[in-house]
Amino acid sequence: MGIELYLFILLVFLIVGALIAVETKNLLSSVISLGAIGFGLSIAFLFLRAPDLAIVQIAVEVVLLIFLIRATIGRDVIPTKGHIHWAGLLIVCLLTVGFFAFGYYAFRSLNEFGTPIISAVGNAPSNKYLADGLKETGSANIVTSILLDYRAYDTLGEATVLFAAVLGALAVLRGRAWSKREKDK
């Protein structure tokens, strides 16, 4: 029971944090609530026996918070006026509730929490990685051996996507610097 209880409490904390982040008027408090969700998520990863993920999540969350605070601080002086039309709000509520009901129905076909698919399927790839990972790659951490050996092409693709995203962000922000320089002339 222990870990499920902890996860339950943590998930309720995450949901409350998400509600605050969505509904609060002040943009900075919204961003900080998002940070609370991210750090809570890294604790959840620790409970789920995924230490690598917890470390990555903390590092990513810190960088993301710095970006978001840099983008929003001092800029929410003009509050957004009004809300969307009530009919649109009704449609969105119906859509999300229907989506949730559909997903809840779909979850009943999954295995119960705590019994992963690899325990039922004997020849799943994860079983091979767990059994031969240390012998074949020399890495005691199986997650690392998957990332950098068995699925190294996926990691290369990840690095490519990250490079493209950073390049895009730099191009977008650099355009501002160029236009400012031209204005100064």
Partner: peptide, 22 residues
């Protein structure tokens, strides 16, 4: 526990950072 979702979610978290930054 199953290591394959963990390895792919590491990738997903980092890509998420890139997309959100953009």
């Amino acid at each position: 526990v199953d290591p394959l979702p963990q390895a792919l979610v590491v990738t997903s978290i980092v890509i998420g950072l890139g997309v959100t930054t953009l």
